[in-house]
Structures are given as C-alpha cells and as structure tokens.
C-alpha cells in the first residue's frame, strides 16, 4: 500500500462541478451494483417471497373466487374474473415491491446502517443514490413482473398482444411509487411512523378497483378513486392485458411521468438536506 500524492482518478469528478451539495456524478450504476451484491450476499429470501405473494393471490382469488363470479364488464367487453383481477394484482405487486424497497429498506439504510451517509462522503451525489436505489428496485420489480406474466400467459389470462406492453407499464408504475416513497420515507423517524405508510396503502389496495370495476361507486367517489395512483396503475395494466384500449391509457402514463419527476426532485432534495447540509 502506498500513499499517493496524485489525486485518485475519478470518472465522476470529471463530469461535474458544484459544491458540497453537488447533485450528480453520473455513477448510479455503482449503487445498483451494490444492490445486486447485497442481494447475493444476504437478502435472497426476501426476494423470493416477493415473487410468490401475487401468484398466491391470483390462484386463490382469481381461480378460486372467480369460479363463482364468472365475468366482469370492461369497457363493454365481458372479461373472465381471473383475467380481470390478474392485471390488478400485477399493478399491486409493482406498487408493493417498489414501496417495500423504497420505504422499509431505505428506512433501515438511513437510520440503522447509515448507508447513505457513507455513500455521500464519496464523490456520489444524492441523485446518484436516489436513482441507483430506485433503478435497482425496478430491476427486481421487473423480474417479478415477467414471472407473473408468464404465469398469466400459462393460465390464459393475457387476452391481447398489447399485454407485452404491460411490462414497461409496470416498470413505469414502480418507478413512480419508488421515487415518491423514498422521499416520504426520509421524513420517517420511528417504526410508528412507518406504520402510517401501511395505513395509507391498505385502503388504496382494497378500494382502487383492483377486485371489482370502478362502476360500483357513485360518481363523486369514482373521482376520488381515479385520483389515486393505484387506480391509475390498475386501469393502465388492465387496459393492456385485456386489450381494451382507450386514450385514457396515455393519461395514466402521463400521470406516472409526473409522479416520477416530482418524486425524484423531492427525494434528491431530501437526501441533500439530510446528509449534505
């Protein structure tokens, strides 16, 4: 080991100016690589559980309960119940995966591991950290989504070729939830605070027309539900896997694009004010 008198050559340092709070060094891939290494080292069981959960839901509710329900009307087309809720579950699992990674995982890394403190003492900026963590969560979420869609295909629940587009849609949804979730988590100080997140998610999960059509609600309530991100997600994925397309799907895409942008700005600012004051 030798003490060097020349500065360590860093790719990142060349790319950006900026002071203490410089945002980005173009190196989120190092944070992603860390995620893979951690998963390989210790976390693989958590990864497996996230894979099976939505499949169990699909089998029990879709095939079990679905045999009593028959079909549901989507945009004037009758759809078998299992094919109706499968895209809903896909959207929910995208949300849950993203939320889990961006809330509980981030909470631990922030308060117990002090992981981000260590990262931000290097040349990394807060946007590298936020992007790296979120993209890693997306890669994981993407693998879940692919396997779930293979199961859907095997059960004959993908009704149109547009189901292929559900995969990027799910990634978009997960990106939206993860970027906003990470910012919100930065305000959480205790385990009790973390329960509030579940408290907010559960009604959204049950009420966002995941298990039944939106039309069961009176019109004013429909507006409220339509404003929720999970309804936007469910309706987008359902449109794609059932092939009942409308221009409304583009509005959902736009909704998540805005959510991602706001979430990233918010999270990056929070990381900066927490660790680079």
């Amino acid at each position: 080991m030798t003490a060097s008198t020349t500065p360590a050559p860093t790719r990142g340092a060349l790319r950006r100016g900026g002071g203490v709070g410089a945002l980005y060094s173009g190196n989120p891939q190092s944070v992603i690589a860390r995620g893979f290494m951690a998963t390989k080292s210790t976390n693989y069981i958590v990864v497996l559980t996230g894979f099976f959960e939505p499949i169990f839901y699909l089998l029990s509710l879709g095939l079990g309960l679905g045999s009593y329900i028959g079909s549901v009307d989507v945009g004037g087309h009758p759809i078998p119940y299992a094919a109706f809720i499968a895209p809903g579950l896909l959207a929910v699992s995208a949300m849950n995966g993203a939320i889990y990674d961006s809330t509980w995982n981030v909470f631990f890394k922030m308060h117990f591991g002090k992981l981000y403190q260590g990262m931000l003492a290097t040349t990394l900026g807060p946007l590298d950290v936020a992007l790296g963590e979120i993209v890693y969560a997306l890669i994981r979420g993407g693998v879940y989504a692919i396997t779930f869609m293979i199961v859907m295909q095997a059960l004959g629940l993908n009704l149109a070729w547009t189901a292929m587009l559900a995969l990027p849609a799910v990634l978009l949804i997960a990106f939206g939830f993860a970027s906003l979730g990470m910012g919100i988590t930065s305000y959480m100080k205790t385990f009790q605070h973390m329960d509030w997140i579940n408290f907010a998610l559960l009604p959204m999960f049950l009420l966002s027309a995941t298990f039944y059509p939106l039309s069961v609600y009176p019109v004013p309530v429909q507006w409220v539900i339509q404003a929720l991100p999970l309804w936007q997600a469910v309706d987008l994925v359902r449109g794609l896997t059932t092939g009942v397309l409308s221009w409304g799907l583009l509005i959902h895409v736009l909704y998540f694009a805005v959510m991602i942008t706001l979430g990233l700005v918010f999270t990056t600012r929070r990381l900066r004010s927490l660790f680079l004051d």
Binding site: G12, A13, G18, A38, S41, K114, L115, G118, A121, T123
Partner: peptide, 26 residues
Amino acid sequence: DPNENGPDIRAQLGVVPQTDNLDAEL
C-alpha cells in the same frame, strides 16, 4: 473551496466517521 468543488475534494479524502457505517448487507 468545498462550496465550489465538493465532489473533487471528497475524491481525495478518506473519512472515518464517529460511528461505523459499514454496509452490514455486504
């Protein structure tokens, strides 16, 4: 000046914080 060149400075520093913040998942 750290106000101008934060990352360039951090590239040449080693930091041992008061409490260990090693990555326990690795």
